[in-house]
Nucleic acid binder design. Structure first.
Lengths: 194, 194
DNA sequence: CGCGTGATTGAAACCCTTCAAGTTTAGTGG
DNA sequence: CCACTAAACTTGAAGGGTTTCAATCACGCG
């Protein structure tokens, strides 16, 4: 709970958090375990205390496409499914053994009632999510595979070293083979990662 | 103002809207006029009463990439720039002669103070935006040009007929020539649009 | 040690882009 | 209402970037 309390501490007082703690569940899951199945309704958001989660879809051909990575102090969920109570198109699973905090919409509603600060905090988080997605769309539309990869390792240096390359390739929208070649080409050009 | 009042009527009473009306500005702009310049901070959201707006970026090579279309009753803006007060990466301009309502963050704050209904309405709108973006990312990662086009005309039949093809191509992340060929191929396969 | 997963490499195929030319459409002014 | 022009769309041929498929290599784990 440590990190999640810390995460909330700017917007909720200690006593307020304690009031809300009954809506929180701490959970430990192993690498590869699944938190959300495509087709089922997503009823929780997941805050990562330690470890690494990801969300992804599987297309008709059975190929995985990584939508998002969530390392420590990130929240991952399917907000569409959560808010509109419709079946999710996405999976969420653990890339590493992970300790996480689960919370549902009731937590968000109660916290919003308790604190205006939390409301604006949450609002800001939503807007930040939109910002990230917008930039990603923009890059998918305009950047080459190499540019997207460089952008990725610069934005998420921390994640780059922790996930297999094929997952990064999937996030970038290219094949593992292509990413391998991109990296080879970068090495040739004396690019030093990190 | 008609449509915007209507848009708000579920979450705010008539008198509440009247109180807030001083934060609203109605504006008419001609086709091609620009509402937001990349590099400048976005201070308003735009609600389309009549007409059609779009947001887009311009990459290093001078190519446009359409991020979003906004027909009647849609809101368009750069939320990142708005909320974080940073220079926008995007342009917003008018695809058709457009009547719109401009409002700033003060409007949102005041409306949120006045009405819990508005808060949840606004929250829902943000989540809906995230949902749309998420699906788009997913499609950019997994679908072919043809699939993306079919998906587009199904999702936005109304927009398809109102914007030039090269803008749709830009939205889909392909060249106008490619879209032309995709359409030709669909016609060959006896696909009837609409 | 051996198996399985992930990374690399090569060759061919494919999709999409680029460039260039031609056609159609839309808008403007006489 | 026609003539003219610019913009949008189409079409073709060549080229580039990525994918696909297959084979090989590297490594960690039971």
């Amino acid at each position: 709970m440590e990190e999640f309390y810390n995460y909330l501490s700017d917007s909720l007082s200690k006593s307020e958090i304690d009031q809300l703690s009954k809506f929180l569940v701490e959970k430990r899951i192993g690498k590869g375990e699944i938190l959300l199945q495509a087709g089922s309704v997503c009823n929780h958001s997941f805050f990562v205390e330690e470890g690494l989660l990801r969300s992804f879809s599987i297309d008709k051909q059975g190929k995985e496409h990584v939508i998002q990575f969530a390392p420590e102090n990130w929240i991952i969920s399917d907000r569409s499914s959560l808010l509109f109570q419709e079946p999710s198109e996405f999976f969420i699973d653990a890339v590493e053994n992970t300790t996480l905090i689960m919370f549902d919409e009731e937590f968000v509603v109660k916290a919003s009632e308790l604190s205006a600060k939390y409301r604006s905090f949450n609002q800001k988080a939503l807007n930040n999510h939109i910002r990230h997605q917008q930039r990603r769309i923009n890059r998918l539309l305009s950047a080459t595979a190499e540019e997207r990869y460089l952008n990725f390792i610069q934005l998420y240096p921390n994640i780059t070293l922790r996930v297999p390359q094929w997952m990064i390739a999937s996030y970038l929208g290219i094949t593992p083979e292509s990413l391998s070649r991109v990296r080879k080409e970068l090495a040739r050009k004396n690019f030093i990662p990190g």
